[in-house]
């Protein structure tokens, strides 16, 4: 467990998981909707880091064919491509969440999630 030279990918991966957990914790604990949205962004970023880590090949370079890559191992292009997509989607979702925050503030004059509990049972 406590190796000294952890591979790069492992570090990124664990960091990603920690980010997800802290993001989730933020979503659970903070009453303020904006903070919850930040929590979501944290979680999202964590996932993106994990994606990158999963695609990393030891000692790999960027998957672009030019003079620099000759003979070198390339990192997996797929996670890179997917993370790109995922980031943009995360952005879109964040935008919708922020719109919600604005609208909720307008409607209730409050940004607390506790004020969004009209419906029960």
């Amino acid at each position: 467990m406590f190796e000294f030279n952890l591979p790069l990918a492992n570090i990124v991966l664990v960091t990603g998981f920690l980010l997800i957990l802290s993001g989730l914790w933020a979503m659970f604990i903070h009453k303020n909707i904006i903070r919850m949205i930040i929590g979501f962004s944290l979680m999202d970023t964590g996932i993106h880091m994990i994606m990158v880590a999963l695609g990393y090949i030891t000692g790999g370079t960027a998957p672009i064919f030019d003079d620099a890559v000759d003979g070198m191992q390339m990192v997996d292009p797929v996670p890179s491509a997917l993370v790109l997509t995922a980031i943009v989607i995360g952005l879109g979702v964040t935008a919708v969440m922020l719109s919600y925050a604005v609208k909720i503030h307008q409607a209730k004059n409050s940004l607390s999630i506790d004020d969004c509990a009209e419906q029960k049972w």
């Binding site: 997800i20 979503m27 979501f40 996932i47 979702v93 409607a107 969004c116 419906q119």
Partner: peptide, 30 residues
Amino acid sequence: NSIALSAGFKYVIAGTMASGFLLLGTMLLY
């Protein structure tokens, strides 16, 4: 309206968590 916004926001939270996990799981499978 106020109720729909409340409900919608809960939906957003749940939905984003779910799709986050879907993404993560997909990548792990990959």
